[in-house]
């Protein structure tokens, strides 16, 4: 084979591969689980009490972060192996008006969004990240984890966190209080954070009911009074009345990268609240389309191997006198 031919073949082959990627049945975004459970975080209701952070640590047996004699308070700065949810603040200018963009502030929660099409689940080589087929909860199973941390880089929200400071560390993340040994959801309870939230800023429920509630709030007019539920959106443990803020007409998690089971609404645009610039198609679906096109049933590699074996055999036989590989 001439070099020219080889290059042609190589380019042609790659072009064919690329075309086949484009033409092959693309793997679409995953759909939400039929009975997916989730949470709705309404940032305009959050008063920053951090009760959810405290309860989360209690349920998940985590230690307070940065707690020392100088800082007796649990003052986690972000998600970490010891902090599965954290209340962060948006502030601009004088930071005096709640839920205003100018000179305003508002609280924003960070915790696992429980993606409908989770990047971590797609990326994990050892199936240690799983999406529960019934509840849609994204869980972690440390027994098969090798700690490659691909889940961390593949998560759009930087949710899975590794214990860097331990020799025998592990990945940690929110599992919606349903990990074995806790199983609040299976036992008919709600998540710890939704249970303690005094204002219903963190609301628990089925994804469908929460999405309906979020859409209802999108239709409310700023200034009118709305009765907000607390706890579980379908069977609230109590309600309270509050003046409706000026909502951004955007439900984060309805569509972003295939959607999430934990959705956010706010009066501040989400890019200011640190949400990533996501498109509707999930990166996981693109990645899996490429992988499955190239490696479906290992067909392409098998054909390539057959061809290569033939060519190599012919070429080594040809110059056998030179001693093949040696």
């Amino acid at each position: 084979m001439e070099r020219r031919d080889f290059l042609k073949a190589a380019l042609g082959g790659s072009a064919a591969a690329v075309c086949s990627v484009g033409m092959a049945q693309a793997r679409p975004n995953l759909e939400p689980a039929e009975e997916a459970v989730g949470m709705l975080f309404d940032s305009t209701l959050c008063v920053g009490c951090k009760a959810c952070v405290a309860k989360c640590k209690e349920v998940n047996s985590r230690v307070p972060a940065h707690s020392d004699p100088d800082n007796p308070w649990d003052s986690a700065r972000d998600l970490s192996a010891d902090t599965f949810n954290v209340i962060k603040v948006y502030r601009s200018g004088k930071a005096v008006n709640k839920d205003r963009i100018k000179d305003g502030f508002c609280f924003e929660k960070r915790s696992c969004m429980h993606c409908v099409d989770p990047g971590c689940v797609s990326a994990c080589p050892t199936t240690s990240m799983r999406r529960d087929p019934k509840t849609g909860i994204v869980t972690h199973h440390p027994d098969s984890c090798i700690g490659c941390r691909n889940c961390m880089v593949a998560c759009p929200y930087n949710v899975p966190q590794f214990d860097y400071n331990k020799v025998f560390g592990s990945i940690h993340k929110c599992q919606m209080c349903n990990q074995s040994g806790v199983e609040r959801i299976n036992n008919g309870q709600m998540t710890g954070c939704a249970e303690v939230c005094p204002t219903g800023a963190t609301l628990f429920g089925s994804r469908k009911a929460l999405l309906a509630e979020a859409k209802r709030r999108m239709t409310l007019k700023s200034g009118e009074v709305y009765t907000y539920p607390r706890g579980d959106v379908s069977k609230p443990d109590s309600m309270h009345e509050k003046t409706v803020p000026n909502y951004q007409k955007h439900i984060w998690g309805e569509k972003e990268a295939g959607g999430t089971n934990v959705m956010h609404i706010s009066a501040i645009p989400f890019d200011q609240l640190g949400m990533p610039p996501l498109e509707e198609r999930s990166a996981a679906s693109v990645s899996e389309t490429v992988q499955h096109t190239l490696y479906s049933y290992l067909a392409l590699p098998a054909i390539a191997l057959a061809g290569l074996t033939y060519v190599v055999k012919r070429n080594t036989d040809h110059d056998d006198d030179e001693g093949g590989m040696s």
Partner: peptide
């Protein structure tokens, strides 16, 4: 353990 969707 294999996850065939995983590039890793």
């Amino acid at each position: 353990n294999w996850n065939f969707n995983s590039v890793m």
